[in-house]
Structures are given as C-alpha cells and as structure tokens.
Amino acid sequence: MNIHYEFPLEEVGYSFGFLDEYAKKEVRRTILKAICIPGYQTPYASREMPMGRGFGTGGLQLTLALIGPDDTLKVIDQGSDDSVNAVNLRQFVQLTCPGVGVTEKLEEATLIQSRHRIPEVALTEAQVLVLQVPYPDPLVVVESSEARRKIMHAEADYSRLLVKLYEDIVHFDEITISHRYPTRINRHYVIDPSPIPRWDVPKLDQSPALILLGAGREKKIYAVPPYSVAEPLVFDDVPFRVEDFRDEHGQRRACARCGAINSFLDEYSDDNNAKIYQCSDSAYCDGQLAQHQQREVKG
C-alpha cells in the first residue's frame, strides 16, 4: 500500500444521525411494526454503534432513527442526566445531530432516552420514551432456544414462566424478581420491560406517551403503544409489590436532598457508614428542591 496515502476527507465525516439513511429506514419500519404488534420483539439488523454493546446501542439506534432538528432530547441513566453513560450518549447525539436541542428538564423534552428508569413525573402525548434493553426476552430464564421461545410467545404460552414465579413463592414466600419484571402488554405478549425497578412498571400501563424498547446486541425492537394495558405477571393471591422504602418503624424514607417521600430512592453509605437515601431521578429531585426554595423565598 502507498505510504503517502492520506484519508479522503469524506472518510472521516459523518452524516446527520450517524447511521446511513438505509439503516434508519429499516429501524423506522421495524418501529412501526413493533407498535402494530404491542410487546412483540421485532427483529432488525442492529448496526454497530461507536459505543459498546450493552451501553445503549439499541436505544441509541431508535433515537437516531427518530430524531430531527425539531426535537429536544433528554438522556438519563440510573435516573440521572449527569451519569457518565448519559453524558456520553448525549454528547454523541449532539455531535452527530447538529441543531437538535438537549435538556435535563423532563417537560422540555420531546424524546427521552433512558437506562433503568422511567421518570417520576408522568410523560405526555408529545413525548416518546426510548428504553435501553440488555435482555429483551423474559422467557430466556425458562427456555434457552430462541426458536422455541418465538413459538411460546406467539401462542402467548407463559405457563413455564408462571411456574417459575410459583416456585419462587414456594421457596421464599415472595416473588424474588427485583427488576425487569415480566409484564404483559395488551393481554398477549409478555415483555422484559428492561431493567427498570418494579416501582416503574405501573407507569407502563395506559401511558399517554409511546414507549419504545431497543435491544441492540440482541437485535430486537418492541413497543408499548400509548394507552395500552400493561400488567405485571402475578397470581391472584400474591399481589405485585413495588420496592418498599419504609424504615424499621414503618415510616416512609425521605430523600436526603429534596425531602420527597414519593420517589424511588438510591441507597448508599457515607464515610461514617451511615445509610443515606436520595432520589434516583435527579431532574425530579432538582425540581422538588427548586419548589422548596421558592416557597422559602415567598415565606
């Protein structure tokens, strides 16, 4: 090869939205079918993105196929806009989609890409939520062959999954699934709602906003359309329970920062090994804090 070879300029430039237009069209067609078949894991030819599989490449391909110059994007990871991975994804979109606005305020966003959380405040019809998915198939715990899982899904045959839940109750007197709680959409397909806590599962039901889920490594896209029935898989006599944030006296724990007693809390220890609780949704926490400060100023 020629030692003096220089890269042609076009080889280092990227077009709007990083992906080529054919890739975007394929993702778009897949999204529409995913909406038409709620909860069905629609296969697509997932492209390699410049971040690792497992870092949100599925969500990112959805975002890049959707986004246009009129959009305002919010990216969150673990509930926080400033988590390293959220920053990384947001910077990538800003780099490859000139003109797109970004925000940390939920109410300003038209597109929200998230890993592991659904925002505390209800979404609106003017918003689309994109969730990043590591494992799309809830049946994988009972059946390792994808070919067989596809048939079970088609027939809405979740008996083996229910047996698994039942065995849990027999062993532990409690369903031990903590996050990624299997949820039935539109009374047919059961989805893995991505590693959101159980706290966020009820937000899937009758959501005014479209919720799209993208699994880049497993090459699947699925959707919870707006105003759809989303029911966590349970037994009549064992209710679905969200995370319990009460202390040993039965008192609801409050966020150490904003004082909220209605949000999902992160738990950690300070240097003296004392437990501290704080809102996982940082924008919500900021909003609560701002309201308090306003009240103090007025008072």
Partner: peptide, 17 residues
C-alpha cells in the same frame, strides 16, 4: 432525509394513536 424524517415522525404518531 430531512423530509423523510419528518414524515416518519407523523407516521409514528398516527400508528401510535
């Protein structure tokens, strides 16, 4: 591409609702 993105978003809307 810009027009196709805009039309797709309208398609997304009508299929969602």
């Amino acid at each position: 591409p810009p027009m196709q993105q805009q039309i797709f978003r309208d398609l997304l809307h009508v299929f969602s609702y």
